[in-house]
Design a protein around this nucleic acid. Sequence first.
DNA 1: ACAGATTTGTACGTATGTATA
DNA 2: GTATACATACGTACAAATCTG
Lengths: 249, 249
Amino acid sequence: MVGQLAADSIERRSGVSLWRQIADKILHAIAIGDFAENAALPPEVALAERYGVNRHTVRSAIAALVQEGVLRAEQGRGTFVLSRKRLSYPIGARTRFSAGLQGQALERHTVLLASSVEPASHRVAEGLGLARGTDVIRLETRGEADGRPVSRAAGWFEARRFAGIDAAMVETGSITASLARFGIDDYLRQSTMLSARHADAADLADLDLQPGAIVLVTVAVNVTPDGQPIQFSESRFPAERVELKLSAL
Amino acid sequence: MVGQLAADSIERRSGVSLWRQIADKILHAIAIGDFAENAALPPEVALAERYGVNRHTVRSAIAALVQEGVLRAEQGRGTFVLSRKRLSYPIGARTRFSAGLQGQALERHTVLLASSVEPASHRVAEGLGLARGTDVIRLETRGEADGRPVSRAAGWFEARRFAGIDAAMVETGSITASLARFGIDDYLRQSTMLSARHADAADLADLDLQPGAIVLVTVAVNVTPDGQPIQFSESRFPAERVELKLSAL
DNA sequence: ACAGATTTGTACGTATGTATA
DNA sequence: GTATACATACGTACAAATCTG
């Protein structure tokens, strides 16, 4: 189905490039409901013919919309409208993955992607209050809600104190539960730095994103209630699927 | 100056597209210091000849790097390496523009871009605890640090209570100082929602960004110490120039 | 102030590669 | 295997913005 993608109002030498006009037409068509979420757009050649432009001009328009997070293009399959609903991920004094998404997703869990022991880099050492080069365990995890990846995190823990936390993570599927095995019943978020950037290749793969997607990046230190640093973490959230709700920290 | 942009290792039919290989070459050249911040890259035609590819292939590589926030292309002038230093903007219980950037920029100020009176939209009314449609004053401001735009914000205030706040803003150049004229000596951040997206046309113009740039978006409500909502705001920060530091909220 | 050169942006055309159905 | 659909790469031409003499 093609809907109301009329070619009439495409104007040459109007000061607005053709590809931008076509991108705006597609946006409008989506806005008025001509294309539902996850619906396929007509193929590039069909759109090109419809608008009376070259296929490359349509490609420029689609590329812009992919980049803006509106469409997803899949080689050999087609171009699809992305879903726009976002989860609201709370960040505060007690930031917990599963508890935070309660009520927003039926099923939440964390999977361990990789783990390793490595010498602490400068920023990890500083965050954990260790000497640079001290052995730390790195856990790479992915958070999923209702089957969709919503976060990708690297967490660093002092290796001597938390030996075996990787195994605990595999068993329990939860950082909080794993820490409990080491006698950590409670922990607090000490500091959080927040930035945003385009997803890199690893983000694209692990979070199932399209090139050009944006990730929100938090760098945080978790401490015990008496202020002892236990975890340094860097988390990436796909901006198209998650927004962050900052609460009392 | 062209530096070490050698063409030798560009490989066809290697499984990695030519434009990506060239983009990585340019990234590497920047990383090893062949191009300083703000330095101009060789023109597209020169790069194309150097690598033995078509100009469009170089353009694809440059487009990717512009999109990743590494380069800035200016029609008629050239393509330049972007600066990578970021300001750290604190967000917490007492979030103040100028005070927050103290020590990071010599000169900070806020300019009023526009102001208007309008009926409160659903989300503004909800944030301020007003009936929908109540008149509110909207102030559009831009924050600058050392001459560079670092934020663009829309703030909404109940029109009846804060009549003339636009004039106060022009005079004082500060939201905090303007609120003081209405007897608000202190105010706190009640809630903050955080997301990220690509900059729209207005962001590009007001923040002096390139298409494809990312903005961090905060939506917040400020309240008096006794909990009365006084300001609803939506702020946009260019992610390439600003990161957010979350503190006690 | 103007003309010409330089440099990026847009738009077209054509061919071939790669992934999916 | 064939057809479809997006991806890459080449080529050409001209427009628009900027810089230079």
